[in-house]
Design a protein around this nucleic acid. Structure first.
Lengths: 159, 159
DNA sequence: TCACTAAATGAAAATCAATTTCAATAGCAA
DNA sequence: TTGCTATTGAAATTGATTTTCATTTAGTGA
């Protein structure tokens, strides 16, 4: 990894090494805060900006990619993993994955037809996951009459 | 529209009417700021929060949907339009659309197979559009040796 | 028509994630 | 080792989004 970065003009440092390693240990839909938490557990002197910058760097050198689902927090996925889409549960905010093999093929065709040079795909299905629907059904009696209002909440940064 | 909102428990106001009308006049990938600008042209007493809240309301009652591409600005699409994906040009930040008819069908199947209750799809292809590539090719000689660094810029709110 | 109540408004402030600044530190090539 | 430059950590800044709060107003029922 040290050599790989050198070819791209970057130096290796203990902090960088720790951030990279931690990211690849987590691997799926990692947010800066999650990664920061994990890094802190090993070395609590490492700063948030260092984690952030190195996560960006991991993307920059092509080892990860941003995933932006609708909750305002950017997450990162390893690119070595095979193409997949995401189910985003509007209720519990969880992410599940699904395979994208044939769909990716079709998307490529569409892009080519439109003379668009594809860099990456992003396929998301928003809805409600099975376990949330099961829970909803159980307490359906209680909430029959309340009309839904605008939700103004957002998940907050984990301290 | 007044009646439609009443059934959902909302009142009609001149400001709301203006925001709704302006949104449907714009229609595609509308950001809060764009909508705010348009509303202001007709009535500059209308506040930003009113525009924001009513845009959220349009989503809430099911007439629009958020589109989040990777540039940090949330945009909104009418849901009455037929399903489409987006090409997002990483270079000029433009959005183009493409038809999603068959792909949507496949996604539905995947969702059903996973017992996921689909609310909406989001399909984006990031890359470089044709006109940007044409421009890139023309000035290719100039930029052969510069190695790409992390981009730290973001489009700023339009005043 | 009038009065009442809950919803809506507008300005300003708060929030929150993302990004930058800056002074100090530390890789790495010569 | 020396010098140059990238990197770091803390704090500040940015920019979009969301909330607060005092005031106004729509829609309901008398």
């Amino acid at each position: 990894m040290r050599e790989f970065l050198k070819t791209k003009g970057y130096k290796m440092t203990p902090q960088r090494e720790l951030v990279f390693r931690s990211f690849f240990e987590l691997g799926e839909h990692v947010s800066v805060d999650e990664l920061f938490d994990r890094v802190k557990r090993i070395d609590k002197a490492v700063g948030y900006s260092t984690v952030w910058r190195n996560l960006k760097l991991i993307c920059e050198v092509g080892l990860a990619r941003e995933v932006t689902v609708g909750d305002g927090v950017t997450r990162y996925d390893r690119v070595t993993r095979k193409p997949h889409g995401h189910f985003y549960c509007l209720n519990c905010k969880s992410l599940q994955e699904f395979d994208l093999n044939e769909i990716a093929g079709r998307l490529s065709k569409v892009a080519t037809a439109e003379k668009f040079a594809t860099e990456s795909f992003k396929v998301e299905i928003e809805g409600v996951c099975q376990s949330c629907r099961d829970k909803e059904n159980k307490k359906a009696k209680r909430t029959l009459s309340t009309s839904p209002k605008i939700s103004r909440t957002k998940p907050s940064r984990q301290k």
